[in-house]
C-alpha cells in the first residue's frame, strides 16, 4: 500500500535522531475519517502530499471523485454540492490554496460554507527549516483568512480530521487539514 512517509521523533529522543522512527499516514486511516464524517464527494486536484490516497479513494464506491483543472474551481464546486445537499471535501496543495484566494473568500468564507479543506503542506518540515516559501506562508495565509486548521502527519493524528469536520459544522466556516510531509524537493 502506498503511504505518506515522514520521519518523526518518538518521545524523548536526542537531536541526532538516534531514536527516530518512521511514522506513516495510511490512506485507509484517512478514508475511515471520511466515512465517519459522511463525506460524499472529493473535489480534488492531486498533489504530492495527497496523491498517495488517490487509488484507494477513487475505487471507493461511497465517494465520488471530482477532478478539477485548477484549484480555484474547488470551492465553488463544493459550494454547489453543499447547497444541493451533499457533503464534499476539497483536496488541494497549499500552492493551489494560494491560487484559490478569491474563491476561498467569496465562495467559502463569505457564504458560511462548512467545508473541510485537506491541504498538501508542500515544504513542511518538523524542524521548522525550509527553503520553500509555499510552506512559510501557508499558516499566515490561513490566519489572514481567519481559517482554522489542523496538522496531520501520520495515523496518530487522523482524529484531527474529525475535529476539523466538527469545527466546520459548529462555526459554519471552512476549516483546513494540513497534510504534512518532509520537504523532499
Amino acid at each position: 500500500m502506498t503511504v505518506l512517509r515522514i520521519t518523526a521523533y518518538n518521545g524523548c529522543e536526542d537531536e541526532l535522531g538516534q531514536s527516530m522512527q518512521e511514522l506513516t499516514l495510511t490512506p485507509t486511516a484517512v478514508q475511515a475519517e471520511l466515512h465517519k464524517n459522511g463525506v460524499t464527494d472529493v473535489v480534488w486536484l492531486p498533489d504530492t502530499e495527497s496523491s498517495f490516497m488517490y487509488k484507494l479513494l477513487a475505487e471507493d464506491p461511497s465517494l465520488r471523485i471530482i477532478p478539477i483543472a485548477r484549484e480555484a474551481e474547488s470551492m465553488p464546486i463544493a459550494l454547489g454540492l453543499w447547497i444541493g445537499g451533499r457533503k464534499p471535501i476539497v483536496m488541494i496543495q497549499n500552492t493551489g490554496l494560494f491560487e484559490s484566494g478569491d474563491s476561498v473568500r467569496g465562495m467559502a468564507v463569505d457564504v458560511n460554507l462548512p467545508v473541510v479543506m485537506m491541504i498538501g503542506y508542500r515544504g513542511w518540515t518538523r524542524r521548522g527549516v525550509t527553503k520553500d516559501s509555499a510552506a512559510t506562508i501557508t499558516e499566515p495565509t490561513l490566519n489572514a483568512w481567519r481559517i482554522n486548521y489542523y496538522l496531520v502527519e501520520h495515523d496518530g493524528d487522523v482524529d484531527r480530521i474529525s475535529a476539523a469536520f466538527e469545527e466546520a459544522e459548529r462555526r459554519q466556516q471552512p476549516v483546513g487539514v494540513l497534510i504534512g510531509a518532509e520537504y523532499s524537493g
Binding site: R64, P76, A78, I83, G85, D102
Partner: peptide, 15 residues
C-alpha cells in the same frame, strides 16, 4: 465571483 458561476452550477447540477 471571478468567473466561478459555472463551477457552482456544476456542483449544484451534480447534487
Amino acid at each position: 465571483g471571478m468567473g466561478k458561476a459555472s463551477s457552482v452550477a456544476l456542483g449544484l447540477a451534480m447534487s
